[in-house]
């Protein structure tokens, strides 16, 4: 697994539950080190071990930990640069949803050895969509649910999201877009470092 993914999980656990929890997880997972390097590649088994240990220490289902991870990736101030990169995807939440097919390609442009799962958005008519995530690590769909929930907030959209299980290696997420301009979204300046406008 790419170090960026492992490092994200580490930052999520540390920023959300404190350094002590992270150290306990790292020990339980048998990492043998304190911190993932974001630019190195690690054995997939380490990621699984960390997620398993985190679920155990937090006494919560793995899926809900993953969903919180997704929300954290978009909404925590430490990861503002990532939120910005996601916001480049579209001018509003619907536009963003429609750009998700491009997400693996976009991440590839930035980090060529970062392989994200394939994403496909299917329009079910009306305001209903299904997002299909294929070929990712188990539970990636739950991370996507967290990301989409936080991005809907970010754009000021009102959306209902549901993880609909896994079928032949593909996870399905139901999206019901109730209102794409429900609230004032968070500000996004196209140019980095702009001071509002």
């Amino acid at each position: 697994m790419h170090g960026l993914v492992n490092r994200s999980i580490q930052s999520f656990l540390r920023d959300t539950y404190g350094p002590a929890l992270w150290h306990a997880v790292a020990r339980s997972a048998g990492l043998g080190f304190d911190s993932f390097e974001p630019m190195l590649i690690y054995d997939d088994a380490l990621t699984e071990a960390v997620l398993g240990a985190a679920a155990h220490h937090l006494d919560r289902p793995r899926d809900s930990v993953l969903e919180d991870l997704g929300t954290y990736l978009v909404s925590h101030p430490h990861l503002e640069p990532l939120r910005r990169l996601l916001r480049f995807g579209g001018v509003d939440f619907l536009d963003f949803l429609n750009s998700l097919d491009d997400l693996p390609g976009r991440s590839h442009m930035a980090v060529p050895d970062l392989d994200l799962p394939q994403l496909e958005l299917i329009e079910e008519g009306g305001d209903h969509f299904t997002l299909i995530c294929c070929g990712g690590p188990k539970g990636f769909g739950h991370v996507m649910v967290g990301i989409l929930r936080a991005m809907a907030d970010d754009y000021g959209a009102l959306a209902m999201l549901d993880h609909n299980g896994c079928e032949r290696g593909c996870e399905r997420i139901q999206v019901h877009l109730l209102d794409h301009a429900f609230a004032q979204g968070r500000h996004f300046d196209l140019a980095a470092g702009s001071t509002g406008s």
């Binding site: 390097e37 630019m39 640069p81 990169l85 930035a110 980095a192």
Partner: peptide, 24 residues
């Protein structure tokens, strides 16, 4: 244009991570 901005920003972040790694 927007993709160029995205890429510029993404590359800067990646470079920053690589520089941090190099320093460590």
């Amino acid at each position: 244009a927007v993709e160029l901005l995205y890429l510029t920003e993404a590359k800067a972040l990646v470079m920053e991570e690589l520089n941090d790694l190099n320093r460590r």
